[in-house]
Computed example of a mutant assay.
Amino acid sequence: MKEFWIYTLLRIVLFLASLGIVIGVWFLIAGSAPLLWAVVIAFLMSGMGSYFLLNHQREALARRVQTRAEAMTAKMEEMKSKEDAD
């Protein structure tokens, strides 16, 4: 579960950083920033950024999930074969 929390925390940090940048630039250009549009733009920016910047963490999370799924499948098969033997 460590990989999940690391990836999630990095996504949140990336979103907040993107939101800060969008609001900062918007204030510099226009003097005020509509919050809804700033959140939407920051969400899109952080999504695109995470695709490239968090690739390593996303792959580590995927490997962990796959390992757990394979272990669960093996355990289910073992229980199934044990049940068939009885």
Rank of each mutant, 00 (worst) to 15 (best):
A17D: 07
I23M: 09
L10T: 07
S18V: 05
I23T: 15
V25M: 09
L36D: 01
G24T: 08
M72A: 12
S81L: 12
I21E: 01
W26K: 03
L53I: 14
E70H: 14
E77I: 14
A30R: 03
S50K: 03
A71M: 12
L35N: 02
E70Y: 14
L36M: 04
A30Q: 06
A60T: 04
T73Y: 12
L35Q: 02
W5Y: 15
F15I: 05
N55H: 12
E83Y: 13
G49A: 14
I12Y: 09
T67A: 13
E70G: 03
Y51V: 07
M45Y: 05
M72N: 11
S32R: 08
S32P: 00
E3M: 04
I21R: 01
S81K: 10
L28V: 11
Q66A: 14
V25C: 05
L10F: 14
K2W: 13
A30W: 11
V39G: 01
A30L: 07
V65A: 07
D86W: 15
T67Y: 05
A38T: 06
M48G: 14
V39A: 06
E83K: 13
S50F: 02
T8F: 15
G31P: 01
M72V: 15
M1S: 11
L28S: 12
I23D: 10
A69C: 05
I29W: 06
P34Q: 02
M72G: 03
A71R: 11
R68P: 00
F15S: 02
K75R: 14
M45P: 00
V13C: 07
D84R: 14
F4V: 09
W26F: 10
S46Q: 04
Q57L: 07
L16K: 05
L9R: 13
M1Q: 06
V39S: 02
M45A: 11
L35A: 08
A42I: 02
A69P: 01
T73D: 09
S81G: 01
V13K: 09
F4C: 06
R63I: 06
I41E: 00
I23K: 08
H56Y: 13
M45Q: 00
E77T: 10
L16V: 15
E77Q: 13
A17P: 04
R68W: 09
I6A: 09
G49V: 04
A30D: 08
G24R: 06
E59Q: 12
L61I: 05
D86P: 00
R58V: 07
I12P: 00
T67S: 08
A33M: 06
S18W: 02
L14Y: 10
K2F: 12
L61E: 04
E78P: 00
A71G: 01
A69V: 15
F27M: 08
L35V: 14
S46C: 05
K2R: 07
N55I: 04
S18Y: 02
G24F: 14
A74W: 09
M48K: 03
